[in-house]
Design a protein around this nucleic acid. Structure first.
Lengths: 239, 239
DNA sequence: GTTACGCCTTGATCCAGATCAAGGACACCC
DNA sequence: GGGTGTCCTTGATCTGGATCAAGGCGTAAC
């Protein structure tokens, strides 16, 4: 897997689809075109190859990012080298904005491309300027931070008072792509097993065994990355 | 232990020390007296006895709180009744403000008085009004939320990639009240053991055993709630 | 005094998930 | 075809922390 620095960083093209996408993101909602344009000239486009590391934990946080394509993994690494995936950021979402607004801000996580990815880099100072003049933007950021915080509390809950089986069942149910009838559904596990395992704070071996036991108990069947859920009720109670 | 509703809720006296304390809190910093007064008339004073529950997870979050005296435990409870203490809020600090600013806000945690406690209840709508007219207040809240988020990320890190020994060592070092010489210190564990255990996501029995092993290895000695650290270096590496 | 209750410790045992080790099953390359 | 690399699974074993059970100790009530 290729590691190392970002391979590419360019000004953002005013006529690109990326430009449109960022403008439509809720953090920039309600800006007139001129205003957004003034911000947009400061933004940069970055392309990452799979395995590229965008930033490490502890790096100065001067920018946050909008994901236009690909997947970005936010992770923690222990002294012994174990990795915990906190979150995998999908296209259409931002990351790093939460940490932006502290003095001496440093990223609390590592960010790595799980796939070839296209990002828009938004310097903190640009968004700070927006916040100074735009009360709605402030309120949207505050709501955004509240949501993030809530998600982290749920993660702590999962880790401290739920077991691995429950976390896996939740993960599968969070990735349902199609419901069929009252009690059946299809879920899609698009990520490599080791990433899912890290996201669930278990080892790949354990994930494999838990999936197998779900199959053995007839609760789901699995074909590669697709999970056919035969009983949502039983999956919900799997514990 | 006494459970149940709050016993007391009164208007806030303009001449009380509580009034002064809230006005000095950073979330209200920089307000002129008139402005703060207009907010303050909406605030209420609450007194809780030990064991009183201020709110449950899932309750509508209409207010947040400033702790003037006592200790408030924020916790999660699993389906099987296990409790996880997320945080113990000390005097001079607020809690619940993070969740306030979402539509349909509900508390993500339970709040219970660990000791007889005095609180100031601040209706969300009051602070929202302040945010609308005061850009500095917005920025302070944003910084506040960022800090909370950062703390939660650290908690997730502790839970997922650190073991109980490490968490205990960190906890002790976070409660140092006096350093003596380069490598020695005194820490004070003011909370009951079962609360500390829950904070560390372990059982009281395990906490007891871990403390004992710290003593047996000569790293600390313990007298009731005071821990004498004989070697900070060894405590840091205890793992 | 003694009874009782909360809070903590200690010991014995158990178990979820980690670790160590060994294969598959593919894809890609020569 | 035969290597060789990556990803995943399976089996055997280990272990950190939980659970179950039994005191110990302080203190409040009578």
């Amino acid at each position: 897997m290729q590691r190392g620095a970002v391979i590419d960083s360019l000004p953002m093209d005013r006529n690109s689809s990326l430009y449109e996408s960022v403008r439509d993101h809720y953090l920039f909602a309600g800006l007139d075109e001129d205003h957004f344009d003034r911000l947009a000239v400061e933004m940069k486009v970055k392309s990452l190859e799979q395995g590229n590391i965008l930033f490490h934990r502890g790096d100065r946080a001067d920018s946050f990012y909008y994901v236009d394509g690909g997947l970005i993994e936010l992770s923690l690494i222990s002294a012994t080298g174990d990795k915990k995936t906190l979150e995998v950021v999908h296209p259409g979402r931002t990351f790093g904005e939460a940490v932006t607004f502290m003095q001496e801000a440093r990223y609390p996580v590592n960010a790595e491309a799980l796939q070839p990815s296209q990002l828009c880099e938004i310097p903190n100072r640009v968004y700070l300027d927006l916040l100074k003049t735009n009360r709605d933007a402030c309120m949207r950021l505050i709501a955004d931070l509240s949501r993030h915080l809530h998600a982290r509390v749920r993660e702590i809950e999962n880790l401290s008072i739920q077991n691995a089986r429950y976390r896996l069942a939740s993960y599968i149910m969070d990735h349902i792509v199609e419901r069929r009838g009252g009690d059946q559904a299809t879920a899609s596990l698009e990520l490599p097993r080791h990433v899912i395992a890290s996201r669930l704070s278990i080892k790949p071996e354990t994930l494999s065994r838990l999936l197998r036991s779900l199959v053995d108990e007839g609760i789901v069947s699995i074909e590669d990355r697709v999970v056919f859920i035969h009983s949502l009720d039983r999956l919900r109670l799997y514990d």
